[in-house]
Design a protein around this nucleic acid. Structure first.
Length: 752
DNA sequence: TTGCAGGTCATTTTT
DNA sequence: TGACCTGCAA
């Protein structure tokens, strides 16, 4: 085979070793996607495997689309017949076919996070619980965590450890919420994201004939980004591959950055134990970045304890040093970045699309955007509020959802009184409670509104249900586009938006038109056989990526580090390299996972092909407050030989606010502190909190008190200050020196 | 039921 | 800071 000549030895091994369990450890930039696509091509060409028997699972829509595209170029249209997609989409597809076995309708709705949270809020209210204790976010992540560990509500309630946990967290009724939540999802004919995996596990566990069918079908199973799988996903994959044993996982433990979503790095670390005859290939040569960048990235990740041994190297030239840039404020940081991009574009004849600005949190994009706009530099933001998360889009989608599946409670709540038709919260509650108490399907209650509501509200609901019934007839007769247009018009939604003449209102109107366009495209696409609205809804339920790559304009890419995985740019700025921001304070306090933050930094820096910039600000507006910042510890951990401190920072401008606040470091402190002679990074002593660390109530914290901090370790309170509404504690820590912490954020354990 | 004013609260990453 | 909630008047 000709195309195999392009591969190096380990890559070739990975491609040709098709049978039996295989694990490919692929460092950043080592040609992972290429190996995967060639492997599939090889299976089809050289082994004569029917594409229909090959299953490849990816993590993101983007990765799936990329792979599909590359395989089609390599193999041709035949490749379309392979099963390829995200875990969620593939299993949703299977669940739609087999839904009856689980008692679900095949057109079940998929609830997104907003729907789930809203349902939880409703439940908490119904159970008359304190919504400050049972916060939707917290409850949902608890339930989600349970599902990812395959703990159903019954098992959850019966598990003494879980129970003890919940009681310790003062949330003893969590198990009950979980039960009700599942019940309501079921009645609404809906599954949440985690259910797609959980229910697939149930399906395969309880229906061996179904399992067997898919086991026979998928002779070859491949999993991309294996480090990001959770137990639930892993178990499904393992079951599917149990007959043929042709399972190939590709991943990089150093890029495992989704633990918050249940990804378990142990899956990749322990894979060998599950398959003793495992064939392991390591792809260690990096083709993407300069030596400087590869080594700097390695120097950070080397600090992690949990990792598979591998040495990522490159034969690329050294390239330029990494630039370390200090700015006085977040706005100045933006200006500096914009200036550099402007200069580099001119000097090196680069395009906007050669640059990426990466940040830890979406909210950081603002200062960057402002600066880029001022310099007239074209940019695009990836992620953030995606198209399908906008209110107006969700509203129209909710109408469509409710028409197709009129027991969908969350869709119902969205549309019943929008646009306003005089059905207030009380009436909505009566309907929902009616359904609940009489154990009736929501749609039946809506159709018999008069038995539950008084005259006026009752007739309003009657009008509503008549309208929905009319929609249902349209949906049956017409294609998705025509039906959706009618729904948009006759629901009054389009008129409502049209009458709003503000700029945002105009935008919203255009967004709805945009959604209708998307539906039109869907209908016109000959690949889609089923043109019904229901089919369209199923198609896009799992589509959260709005990067259709349609914008051909040349733009600088702004995105979070997470969103950058799998991409590459000539020059990359990692901005906001400040302690508590990157690494993130939240992350460190909730899970004390410095290692994952390191991996995150590794992902960020290895996106750069030619040049990497690390920038930080000494002060930054966060939560509407001006905070003083310290440079990130990662700047200390990077091999200092790779870094040059940028001199361009000398900015005379000092925002008034900073001067007033007397910014520490605004005088004298240049660059980061480093021991000059040794040129060795300073070793920070990282504190491991005591195992049962629980933050204390710090309302009455006094000076001289001994405390423990999950990150800074032990310390003694120096003084407590009140500044406006904020209380600040200055604490002398054993290893980290004096720190001033905002008490509302700091998690401290008081040692008595 | 609706709309407004004022208050509170959290503030990460994504299928 | 801004998203969301609550309470009150119409």
């Amino acid at each position: 085979m000709d195309y195999l000549k392009e591969l190096n030895t380990p890559q070739l091994q990975a491609v040709q070793h098709t049978d039996g369990p295989v694990m490919i450890i692929a460092g950043a930039g080592s040609g992972k996607t290429r190996v995967l696509t060639y492997r599939i091509a090889h299976l089809i060409y050289s082994r004569g495997i029917d594409p229909f028997n090959i299953l490849s699972l990816t993590f993101t829509n983007k990765a799936a689309a990329e792979m599909k595209h590359r395989i089609e170029t390599l193999v041709g249209l035949e490749a379309r017949n392979t099963w390829m997609g995200t875990f969620h989409s593939i299993f949703a597809k299977i669940l739609r076919v087999e839904s009856a076995k689980l008692g679900y309708p095949s057109n079940f709705t998929i609830y997104d996070t907003d729907d789930s949270k809203s349902l939880i809020r409703t439940l908490v209210k119904e159970m008359r619980l304190d919504d400050k204790v049972y916060k939707a976010n917290v409850v949902l992540s608890r339930i989600s965590g349970a599902k990812n560990r395959l703990l159903g509500w019954k098992a959850y309630q019966d598990d003494p450890y879980v129970k003890a946990d919940d009681e310790a967290a003062m949330k003893p009724r969590m198990g009950e919420i979980y039960q009700r939540y599942q019940d309501r999802l079921f009645k609404a004919g809906a599954m949440d994201f985690d259910d797609l995996l959980f229910n697939t596990n149930v399906l395969f566990r309880d229906h061996l004939d179904v399992l067997n069918k898919y086991q026979q079908r998928f002779k070859y199973v491949m999993v991309d980004e294996f480090q990001d799988t959770n137990i639930s996903q892993y178990l499904i994959t393992k079951k599917l591959a149990a007959v043929h044993q042709n399972i190939c996982v590709v991943g990089d433990d150093a890029q495992s950055i989704y633990a918050f979503r249940g990804a378990d790095i142990q899956n990749i670390l322990n894979f060998e134990k599950d398959y003793p005859d495992l064939f392991v290939v390591k792809l260690e040569q990096n083709y993407r970045s300069t030596k400087t960048i590869v080594e700097a990235a390695n120097s950070i990740i080397d600090k992690n304890k949990a990792q598979l041994k591998k040495v990522v190297w490159t034969s690329n030239p050294d390239g330029e040093l990494i630039e370390l840039i200090k700015a006085a404020s977040d706005n100045e940081e933006g200006r500096i970045v914009a200036n550099i991009i402007f200069e580099e574009k001119n000097n090196k004849k680069l395009n906007n699309s050669d640059f990426a600005i990466l940040y830890r949190t979406n909210s950081q994009s603002r200062s960057m955007e402002e600066a880029l706009r001022k310099m007239n530099l074209n940019y695009k933001i990836v992620g953030g509020l995606s198209f399908y998360q906008r209110k107006e889009i969700k509203d129209l989608m909710a109408y469509m959802r409710f028409t197709v599946n009129p027991v969908d409670e969350e869709a119902f709540k969205r549309v019943i009184n929008y646009p306003k038709r005089g059905i207030g919260d009380t009436s909505v509650d009566k309907i929902l409670v009616g359904a609940y108490e009489h154990d009736m399907p929501l749609w039946d209650v809506v159709q018999n509104a008069h038995s539950f509501l008084g005259g006026k509200a009752g007739s309003s609901v009657d009008n509503f249900s008549t309208m929905i019934k009319a929609f249902q007839i349209e949906v049956e007769r017409k294609d998705a586009f025509e039906a959706a247009s009618i729904i948009a018009k006759q629901s009054g939604l389009l008129r409502e938006l049209y009458e709003d003449k503000t700029i945002e209102g105009l935008n919203r109107y255009e967004n709805v038109q945009e959604l209708l366009n998307a539906i039109k495209e869907y209908v016109d696409n000959p690949e889609n056989e089923d043109k019904s609205l229901g089919s369209f809804l199923q198609e896009i339920a799992l589509l959260t990526d709005n990067d259709q790559d349609k914008d051909k304009t040349d733009a600088i890419t702004l995105m979070t580090v997470h969103a950058s995985k799998g991409l590459e740019f000539k020059q990359v700025f990692v901005v906001g390299m400040e302690e508590d921001l990157f690494p993130s304070q939240m992350m460190m306090q909730s899970r004390d996972d410095l290692e994952e933050e390191r991996r995150l930094f590794y992902v960020a820096s290895t996106r750069a092909m030619e040049k990497l910039y690390l920038t930080y600000a000494l002060s930054r507006y966060r939560f509407g407050r001006l905070l003083n910042c310290e440079p990130s510890r990662f700047l200390e951990e990077v091999n200092p030989n790779m870094i040059k401190v940028n001199k361009r920072v000398a900015s005379k401008e000092m925002p008034g606010a900073l001067r007033k606040e007397g910014l520490p470091g605004s005088s004298g402190f240049i660059g980061i502190k480093r021991q000059p002679e040794s040129r060795q990074p300073i070793q920070l002593k990282i504190h491991t909190p005591t195992p049962d660390f629980k933050p204390s109530n710090t309302n009455n914290l006094k000076a001289e008190q001994l405390v423990e901090h999950p990150k800074f370790g032990f310390g003694k309170v120096q003084k407590i200050e009140t500044e406006g509404l904020n209380k600040k504690a200055t604490i002398q820590f054993e290893h980290f020196g004096e720190k001033t912490l905002l008490l509302s954020f700091a998690k401290l354990r008081i040692i008595d």
